[in-house]
Design a protein around this nucleic acid. Structure first.
Lengths: 138, 138
DNA sequence: GTATTGACTTGGACTTAGTCCATCGTAGGA
DNA sequence: TCCTACGATGGACTAAGTCCAAGTCAATAC
C-alpha cells in the first residue's frame, strides 16, 4: 500500500474507487503523464471511470499539493507525482520526454530584491531544454 | 521604424501588411500577449486580418528566434518579444501578469553532468512564481 | 446493520485554443 | 508590367479541458 493513498486518507480525502485508481496510476509511475494518459491507465483498472472524474481528481491532488502540474510546450499539461521532493525538469524538445533533475544551488536566492518588483516570490520552476540521447543521435 | 521590422526584412522575411501589423503589435508591447490578444490588437489596425494568419506569423517569428513562446499555467501560450536579451519570468499566480527579470548567475552552470542523463542541454527557462503587489494586498 | 446526506461521479454538451486546407490574392523578381 | 510562388483567408475541424443536472455512494449517526 502506497504512502500517497495513506497520506490522502489521513488528510480526510474521501476515498472512492475512482480516486483510488487515479492516485495509484500516478503513484506507480515515475514519468510525467498527461491527463489523457492518466485517464487511459485508470480506465484499464476501472473501465467505467469518466474523463471528468479524472480531471476532478487531478485538480484536487494539485490543490492538495500532492501532485505538480507542469506546463510544457505541448498543449496538454503533465502531472508530476514527485511533489514532495523539490526538483526541476529536463525536457526533450523533440519527443517531449521529461526527466526530474536536482541542480546545485537555489535559484530563488539568485533573484535579488531589486528584480522582484514588489512581488512576494514563493516558488521557482526551472526547465532545462535540449535533446535526449535518442533524439540527439537520430 | 522598428528594429524588429528591419531585422525581419533583412532576413528575407517576405513583408505583407498582415505580417507587418503582427510584428508591430509585438514590438510595441512590453507585456506578454496571448495569440488572441495579438489578434485583437492586429485587427484594430487591419480589420480584415484572419486569425489563422496571426497564428502563422507568430509561429514563424518563433522559428526565426525573434519571439519567445512562453507556456504558463493558463491554457493559452504567451508571446514574448524580448527574445534578443536573455531573461527569465516572474509570474503572478493570481492574475497571470508576467514581468521579465534578470537574475544573477547562470542556471545552466548549476546542472552538473551527472544530472544531465546524456541530454544535450541547450537552454533553460526559469519562472519565478508569487503574488504581484496588487494581488498580495487585495 | 440501516438510514441519511452531502460529497462524488457520470456522460454529454459546451468552450477555448489552435490547426488544416482549398482557394484567392499579392510581393517582389525578371 | 507581368508572373508566380509564397502568403492570406475563413470556415471546418481537432484537442484539451470545463460545466452541469441527475444519479450514486462513503462515511457518519443511530
Amino acid at each position: 500500500m502506497s504512502d500517497l493513498l495513506e497520506r490522502l486518507r489521513g488528510r480526510g480525502w474521501r476515498m472512492t474507487a475512482q480516486r483510488r485508481v487515479v492516485a495509484e496510476v500516478l503513484d506507480g509511475e515515475h514519468v510525467h503523464l498527461t491527463a489523457d494518459e492518466v485517464f487511459t491507465r485508470a480506465s484499464a483498472k476501472l473501465p467505467e471511470i469518466s474523463r471528468a472524474t479524472v480531471y476532478n481528481a487531478l485538480g484536487e491532488l494539485v490543490s492538495l499539493g500532492e501532485v505538480l502540474e507542469v506546463a510544457t510546450d505541448d498543449r496538454a499539461k503533465r502531472y508530476d507525482p514527485n511533489a514532495h521532493r523539490p526538483h526541476h525538469h529536463l525536457l526533450c524538445s523533440r519527443c517531449g520526454t521529461i526527466r526530474d533533475v536536482h541542480p546545485l544551488g537555489d535559484p530563488l536566492a539568485d533573484l535579488p530584491a531589486t528584480e522582484r518588483f514588489g512581488f512576494t516570490v514563493s516558488d521557482v520552476e526551472v526547465t532545462y531544454r535540449g535533446l535526449c540521447p535518442d533524439c540527439a543521435s537520430a
